[in-house]
């Protein structure tokens, strides 16, 4: 990371934006997460909230304790520190998500296979055959945007979204994949369903979302019985 690629901008009276680059890249995420952790450790009480996303980190600070100039100075200091000690950058966690890939719950699985001239088993093999990085959390609590999906199965969203996507649904939108934490409308191509709880409001905020930006995710195909025994809902 260097100062020349990283920019800090003011966006509102108590919010700053750090830009790490202009294109989505797997290489940026560890830098964003490393800086996020350092900001938490060093600037703790100055910071109200942090929102990492793809190429940026939004910093909401306490205007009663710091103004933008102060925040800017502190952030530059932390960036220089990170450059000097890149080995301290924490690695994201590994998370495995069990998925029952089946047309019963994966409404779009067969059509998606047909569209790409693949068999259903090939689609499953390709989707579960690689690991994904969490680029952002948003849209809904615990909704992680994972990338990148293999070009052979990358598929655009439906033109008009479905009104209700069941919780646990696993979808594809272009080169991204995601698990819907709760019942919500959505336009993603649904290929299966996971019994895994993605968001737990009983947990503290740091652990409520199973996924965090920087985590690495893999999908493990399971059968119907395993799906049910793990608490999956039909």
């Amino acid at each position: 990371m260097s100062d020349s690629t990283m920019r800090v901008e003011a966006v509102s009276e108590d919010t700053a934006m750090i830009r790490f680059g202009d294109t989505i890249s797997e290489a940026l995420i560890p830098q964003i997460v490393a800086l996020e952790k350092r900001i938490e450790q060093r600037l703790g009480p100055l910071v109200i909230d942090l929102v990492p996303s793809y190429t940026t980190l939004l910093v909401h600070y306490d205007l009663n304790r710091a103004d933008f100039r102060h925040v800017l100075r502190e952030l530059r200091h932390l960036v220089a520190d990170l450059e000097a000690h890149p080995e301290d950058a924490p690695a994201g966690r590994q998370v495995e998500i069990p998925v029952w890939y089946d047309p019963t719950v994966g409404y779009d699985l067969e059509a998606l296979a047909e569209r790409h001239e693949l068999s259903v088993d090939e689609v499953i093999g390709i989707h579960s055959g690689k690991s994904y990085q969490v680029f952002a959390i948003g849209f809904n609590p615990g909704f992680g945007f994972l990338g990148r999906v293999d070009d052979r199965i990358a598929t655009p969203r439906h033109k008009s979204p479905r009104e209700a996507i069941d919780p646990g649904s696993v979808g594809i939108a272009d080169a991204q994949t995601a698990i819907y934490p709760r019942l919500s409308p959505g336009g993603w191509q649904i290929i299966g369903r996971s019994p895994q709880l993605m968001f737990d409001p009983e947990q503290d905020p740091a652990h409520a979302s199973l996924l965090q930006v920087g985590d690495t995710v893999t999908f493990r195909p399971i059968d119907r019985d395993t799906f049910i025994s793990l608490g999956g809902q039909l």
Binding site: V51, F139, G142, S209
Partner: peptide, 11 residues
Amino acid sequence: RKGAQRAGLTE
């Protein structure tokens, strides 16, 4: 809600 936006929670 402060400090929970990174979990996707609205403020």
